[in-house]
Design a protein around this nucleic acid. Structure first.
Lengths: 239, 239
DNA sequence: CGCCCTTTTGAAGAAAATCAAGGGCAGTGG
DNA sequence: CCACTGCCCTTGATTTTCTTCAAAAGGGCG
């Protein structure tokens, strides 16, 4: 497996030159497997690597004093983390594997060299950060009640996993448990279950054997007041 | 009023050279007053200015479909916003004046020129973004119940307004209403009031005539499980 | 089969929203 | 000077939402 998902991601974020692309593809990296439930980076570390998710799902989380975890974001294939190290800042949260994951570890020194040389790459990093931030904001804004909160997260995942969605009926892999969803939303797993039932009964979303089925994406998005624009930077950045 | 608060802020975030500092001080800017309740930037704009808060409090917010607003961050004197424009990206949220504000408008073209030339300045921007992001995360993580949510926000404001806190008894201006607090926390103003009473009764925080008094900062921080480290980048970035 | 993990459902309790109504205080205007 | 008005804070009563506690039912896998 190569860094292709990573390069593709950056290409979506900014206009890379051919040279940028070539240099990215030639970045040396190490592959690392992380078992479901294990942490890739722990809060307080200042990793000297950039981690790219090649396969599987990971998540950012913090522990609360009572021991429960609160996810603050999902990392899907092509996503990366560890940028804190751009500033040599220690991580303010941990990264855990929600499923078995394979990651690419890229030496930050190598990557930073590219980023400082290439305006497009450094712009792509900014875009990525802005999207992360916007995503956090939507989590705050759209968590009025549990149903909307869950519906919104499902919409987010759908939009991120199938970026070029056009049609209206969708099916996608949802390899996480209801408890993990609850962690991400600050909701009890029991309550997640009840809401999932409501979504099912209302024909908005059903989960069967690890697959999420959205019979009517438009309806779900309306229910969640989901607007995907925050995930897709306008390529105004072509400039 | 000069850009001094802005320069001071950046100096906290990264090691500026004397030249950086001089260049920042020489940035041309326009002053703009915004009345309480008015918006400085509206969602969807891609402002061509960087805005620096010189005086007053502002806030980032989004509107919810039902018309209520959800604040996603406070902007205090010295803070800046409009960095989206680094990527020519449209704002995904609006900025409103919580009190009467005076802002400095700096042409992005001018500022970007500085930022691309100076590694320290561009690093300071990264730091600022990381802090914004970390702050958003703490809002998610530490909002289990209303009391902790409010206590945490009070701690955040205290830490940001009095960065070099050492002693344990604090008093500071809190120029916002309980309703505005509720907007920031996703809590009903009525409920904010009830919690403020609890804080008062428990001797954790009292508000009198627009002044917040924290008799025992350590106790309040403990209640909120507040750890200020996310606000203060270790100057590891000296490197 | 039997075990573990996840999902599902029920019933009771806590937390917060909602609805409604006073009360303080500053500013306005007669 | 005082009544009036508007804004904010405060409190009570009621209802909704979510949590907690508990237990049962599926499903995959040794």
């Amino acid at each position: 497996m190569s860094l292709a998902p990573f390069v593709e991601r950056l290409k979506r974020l900014a206009r890379l030159t051919e040279q940028d692309e070539r240099a990215l593809h030639q970045l040396p990296f190490a592959k690392r497997h992380i078992d479901k439930g294990r942490d890739a980076i722990i809060k307080g570390e200042a990793p000297s690597y950039l981690y790219v998710i090649l396969d599987g799902w990971a998540g950012r989380y913090n522990l609360r004093p009572n021991g429960s975890r609160r996810m603050t974001g999902y990392l899907l294939p092509g996503d990366f983390c560890g940028i804190h190290a751009v500033c040599h800042a220690p991580m303010d949260h941990s990264i855990t594997a929600l499923t078995n994951c394979s990651l690419a570890k890229i030496e930050l020194a190598n990557f930073n060299a590219l980023a400082t040389d290439s305006p497009a790459i450094s712009r792509a990093l900014w875009q990525a950060k802005l999207i992360d931030e916007a995503t956090l904001r939507t989590w705050l804004v759209n968590s009025t009640d549990a149903l909307r909160t869950i519906a919104h997260l499902l919409c987010e995942l759908e939009a991120r996993l199938i970026p070029d969605a056009m049609d209206n009926e969708r099916k996608l892999e949802l390899p996480i448990t209801q408890e993990q969803l609850g962690d991400a939303l600050g909701i009890t797993p029991v309550h997640v279950n009840r809401i999932m039932r409501q979504l099912r009964e209302r024909g908005l979303a059903t989960v069967h054997q690890g697959a999420l089925h959205i019979p009517d994406l438009a309806a779900l998005r309306k229910e969640a007041s989901f607007d995907p624009s925050y995930l897709h930077p306008t390529h105004a950045s072509k400039v």
